[in-house]
């Protein structure tokens, strides 16, 4: 069986040439190729990792921003509340003050009115007295003819003039 009998020459050349090829390719092909493949894989991995890290950082930043925003919002709410309270307090105080002042003014006005009224009554009394004297004088002047008439007149007059 020639087919399954190894041939010396072919084995000789095959061994030599194959080994040489392995060594040449190892130095000039597989070495550089595999090294750069590895480098590329490492760089891709690094890039992916850093991208992941950046994403995480962005997420963290977002959370931080949210927190700050929330704080600001709370602060604003608090300030608004304070302002409202202050406003209410001021308004209440003003209202109270106005009330007091109004009351005071009303009281003074009332006193003044009373005084004016008294003064007017006094004046009126004086006027009435004067008038009464005038009337009395006239009556006296006209009807001093008889005693009856004088008496009737005085009674009439006294009937009409009534002090209030």
């Amino acid at each position: 069986m020639e087919l399954v009998k190894p041939d010396f020459g072919l084995v000789f050349w095959m061994t030599i040439s194959f080994l040489i090829v392995v060594f040449i390719l190892r130095k000039f092909a597989w070495g550089p190729i595999l090294t750069s493949l590895k480098e590329r894989e490492t760089s891709i991995n690094d890039a992916l990792n850093s991208a992941k890290k950046a994403k995480e950082e962005v997420a963290n930043m977002k959370a931080e921003n949210e927190r700050i925003l929330q704080e600001a919002r709370n602060e604003r709410d608090k300030m608004l509340k304070d302002a409202r309270e202050t406003k209410d307090a001021i308004v209440n105080e003003a209202r109270t003050k106005a009330q007091v002042e109004g009351d005071r003014i009303v009281t003074i006005a009332r006193e003044t009115i009373q005084n004016e009224k008294l003064a007017a009554i006094t004046e009126l009394k004086n006027q009435v007295a004067t008038l009464s004297i005038d009337i009395a004088e006239k009556v006296i002047r006209q009807q001093l003819a008889g005693d009856d008439k004088q008496k009737a007149l005085v009674n009439d007059l006294l009937k009409d003039v009534k002090l209030n």
Binding site: L25, F28, A29, W30, P32, I33, T35, S36, L37
Partner: peptide, 14 residues
């Protein structure tokens, strides 16, 4: 063929 192909490919990497 092996040497031609793979050394030229290796050059592309370096």
């Amino acid at each position: 063929i092996l040497l031609l192909v793979f050394t030229s490919v290796a050059k592309m990497y370096t």
